[in-house]
């Protein structure tokens, strides 16, 4: 059945996909050395096909700048934006609260605490995986503590979940401060990482985040219709044949996994997970099967845009977490006020 709304969704999906591709190529060209789109495509094509015949007439340093410096960072920014927006869609769908995101549940703080611990102990136990691993453990432990705090008689209350998340998040923030205090001379590493940065992005990181985002998207789309029905409340969704408790846990674990990987790779980047799903819901409505892909792409574009501003346009590189908070914070306030006044949702 082709309804007007599904036509609109198709159009938006194609537009966003083209914009994502365009933004990646455009931003690759921007920076200290500016590179034309044609040259970028040639370099990418030649490295995929593993032949250098297309590189005639292109400066020797350009393939290096594109493939080793810019693309890993640009793809990391895009994927992290997609991952954070996706987690936001899941948390908002489960908590029935358009203001929910990885922070409301304390998940980001949990991941940050785990990663800070790894940074402080200077762990190289699992090579490049030690920080993501600690972040993931931190996120999952936080998730279980928060869920445990908000479970009564075997049922999770969505409202208590947010409250528990805020409380646990506050405790963890104090914990991170204590770690910074202990870090003494290494404190700069933790602080800079916490503010969020894409500077040290690598192809390994791109692969890790890419896999995490892909897994997250598949799991969420698999349970997409269940998640829609869960917005009616667990009593109704149970009666409509949804294994509400199980789906909720699976999706919370998935979202926390994606969040943890994003936080571990780049530090705390706020507001993407909150604002993007909210904006996209305005265009495609509340159906999570449409909201998820659209939000993931829009989140990727937005974070890439923010990162390109700090990397190529601003004279000094501002930490990305600071930038997204400065852009996103006021935006969030406007939405919040509108909601309070209007009482209407979308």
């Amino acid at each position: 059945m082709v309804t007007p709304s599904s036509k609109k969704f198709l159009f938006l999906t194609i537009a966003l996909a083209l914009t994502t591709a365009g933004a990646i190529i455009l931003s690759t060209g921007m920076g200290y050395i500016s590179i034309s789109a044609g040259e970028i495509l040639k370099v990418i094509f030649s490295s995929i096909s593993n032949s250098s015949s297309h590189l005639n007439g292109i400066d020797n340093s350009i393939p290096y700048v594109i493939m080793d410096v810019r693309l890993p960072r640009i793809l990391t920014a895009t994927l992290v934006g997609a991952g954070l927006a996706m987690s936001g869609v899941i948390y908002q769908g489960i908590l029935l609260n358009p203001l929910a995101d990885p922070y409301t549940l304390g998940i980001s703080s949990g991941a940050a605490f785990g990663a800070s611990l790894a940074l402080l102990a200077n762990l190289t136990l699992f090579n490049q995986f030690s920080i993501p691993l600690f972040a993931f453990v931190g996120a999952i432990v936080t998730l279980f503590v928060v869920i445990h705090l908000s479970t009564f008689n075997g049922q999770i209350s969505a409202n208590t979940l947010i409250l528990s998340g805020v409380i646990v998040g506050a405790i963890l923030s104090a914990g991170i401060s204590f770690l910074k205090y202990l870090a003494d001379e290494q404190v700069a590493i933790i602080i800079f990482w916490l503010m969020g940065s894409f500077i040290s992005s690598t192809w390994d990181g791109v692969v890790i985040i890419g896999v995490a985002v892909l897994i997250g998207a598949i799991v969420t789309l698999y349970y997409g219709r269940d998640l829609n029905i869960m917005s009616l409340g667990s009593r109704s969704s149970d009666a409509l044949g949804v294994e509400t408790a199980r789906v909720r846990i699976i999706l919370l674990l998935t979202a926390s996994f994606v969040t943890a990987i994003c936080v571990a790779m780049t530090g705390i980047i706020g507001f993407i997970g909150l604002i993007v799903p909210h904006l996209m819901r305005f265009f495609v409505g509340p159906d999570n099967r449409k909201l998820l892909p659209v939000s993931a792409m829009a989140g990727g574009i937005l974070l890439l845009f923010a990162d390109t501003i700090t990397r190529a346009i601003l004279p000094v590189e501002v930490p990305i977490g600071v930038l997204t908070a400065l852009i996103g914070g006021p935006f969030f306030c406007v939405i919040f006020r509108k909601r309070q006044r209007g009482g209407r949702h979308e």
């Binding site: 358009p98 917005s231 009616l232 109704s236 009666a239 044949g241 294994e243 409505g285 509340p286």
Partner: peptide, 21 residues
């Protein structure tokens, strides 16, 4: 749940729609 939902339906007293369907 699915099997049960094909045999029993519930009309609850109130329902949430946080998002507009």
């Amino acid at each position: 749940r699915r099997t049960l939902a094909q045999q029993i339906s519930l009309v609850p007293q109130e329902f949430d729609t946080g998002f507009g369907y």
